[in-house]
Amino acid sequence: MLRKSVSRPASRGFSVLKSLKTTESPKSTQNAKPNDRFKPLSDAQVAYLDRVVRVDQAGELGANYIYAGQYFVLASKYPHLKPVLHHMWEQEIHHHNTFNEMQLKRRVRPSLITPLWKLGAFIMGSGTALISPEAAMACTEAVETVIGGHYNDQLRCLNNQYELERNDGTKGHSQELSSLIATIKQFRDDELEHLDTAIEYDSHKAVPYILLTEGIKNVCRVAIWTAERV
């Protein structure tokens, strides 16, 4: 019974070398003639984007492993939760892959302590799931609350601070920025959907609810702060 649940995360491959290179081809942005190219980003703007990609990649890595932990513990014992968890996990994997690709393409260094994020997230997911399914949902609720807020902060900054000037004097967002904003918006919506799902599946009935959710929220805030920097 339990062997079945282990085969899932193992088959995903926990650390996979990316074999596909994502260097830029001139075709992808063919409409960018020298004259409507944007003026250089400032050092501060580049540094912020660097942090955004690193922290979001680490965050989605964590989310992926939280769901892996929950699935590992709950899937076989609570069949009715299996499709729900599986759906959310699939979305996290998509989020994680998206940021992985971006990290390679935009040449951002990943967080230095990825092994720690993986282990910590897995323990958080499986640990709360071992308490009860409701505690696992309370964990999801807390994580998604913080992540949703975090994505909203990023969207605010990206929308306000990245109006760039072209060489011909007109202003706007570059394709690169618009697509980053669209991606984060989509992911924020997905996370808030996870939040609703968690509440729907009785996260509020978890004991001890306040202790659990507030504790996990603090852990997430510290993790975000660290992943931006290290």
Partner: peptide, 13 residues
């Protein structure tokens, strides 16, 4: 850290 985010050089100078 001195190797930072590389914006698309095709879009940005």
């Amino acid at each position: 850290a001195r190797r930072l985010y590389h914006p698309s050089a095709l879009e940005h100078q």
